[in-house]
């Protein structure tokens, strides 16, 4: 019995020390900004891998989610005779919530797990060690560009998601279900406020991007350098990122949109 309590306490301490390691890791990665001539090409490559290659899944998901919102929204709103409000429903849902959150979840699944696996593999094949032995700080060269790329790419992906979603909703609402186009856009523009809704959504996606990139990169760096360790780290990235995003979403939504 005592052993179990001790083990429980030990795992709690492990979690705390892990968070502490993650914090020091983050400080090292953020402080180590490489020379622009060296760092910029690295950042560019990472933006390509992390951002551009995630476009496909973001665009397709955004389109389908927008279309489903259009369909479901129409069904519900027609009960109240307010089909014309469908534009604002789709736009507000996407811009405030689904854009940042779903994009972050997709990002964690696609780009986050890829980052973790790549860095974990570099650790397992001793590439990070050999970099250190050559006098190059792997935090600066390998980790920092990936962190910043996630940071920058996420808001862009979230905005593209929202735009594609709105367009998908328009396809369903206006072209298919026959809502008046003027009412669709007019109601939307009247109820979506740039600062309160769009900008807050962007702030959310920046925060999510930061958290997802940090978790992904840290899990790869800290993993047990075996194939079992890498696959466990990849799973952890997706799970922790998703939970963190959903939890932070609640906190941010309460702060931003709650006037209570």
């Amino acid at each position: 019995m005592i052993d179990r309590i001790a083990a429980f306490g030990r795992s709690g301490l492990d979690v705390v020390s892990s968070i502490g390691r993650a914090g020091r890791f983050l400080a090292g990665a953020l402080a180590g900004v490489p020379r622009p001539s060296v760092g910029f090409p690295l950042l560019l490559r990472q933006l390509y891998f992390v951002g551009v290659l995630s476009l496909a899944i973001v665009v397709v998901s955004g389109l389908f989610i927008g279309m489903v919102l259009g369909l479901q929204g129409y069904t519900i709103l027609s009960d109240y005779g307010s089909e014309a409000a469908i534009g604002q429903m789709i736009a507000l849902t996407l811009v405030r919530e689904l854009g940042p959150v779903v994009t972050a979840l997709l990002f964690a699944g696609r780009a986050g797990s890829a980052l973790t696996a790549e860095i974990g593999l570099m650790k397992a094949t001793e590439q990070l060690s050999s970099m250190e032995m050559m006098g190059v700080d792997p935090l600066r060269r390998v980790i920092a560009p990936r962190l910043w790329a996630g940071f920058i790419a996420m808001p862009i992906l979230a905005m593209i998601f929202s735009v594609v979603g709105v367009w998908g909703g328009m396809l369903v609402g206006v072209d298919w279900l026959g809502v008046f186009e003027g009412a669709f856009w007019g109601n939307m523009q009247n109820s979506v406020d740039f600062i309160d809704d769009v900008l807050n959504g962007i702030i959310k996606s920046v925060v999510f991007g930061f958290v997802c990139a940090w978790i992904a990169v840290y899990q790869g760096y800290d993993c047990v350098p075996t194939s079992a360790g890498i696959s466990s780290a990849t799973t952890k990235t997706v799970v922790y990122s998703s939970l963190a995003v959903l939890g932070l979403d609640f906190v941010l939504t309460a702060v931003m949109f709650g006037d209570f």
């Binding site: 570099m122 094949t125 590439q127 060690s129 050999s130 250190e132 032995m133 050559m134 006098g135 190059v136």
Partner: peptide, 18 residues
């Protein structure tokens, strides 16, 4: 890091950057 510039290390797996 400056001292390491004077050292070379050959890892068991080679550890080339893939």
């Amino acid at each position: 890091y400056r001292l390491r510039e004077k050292m070379g290390m050959l890892f068991q797996s080679g550890a080339l950057f893939t």
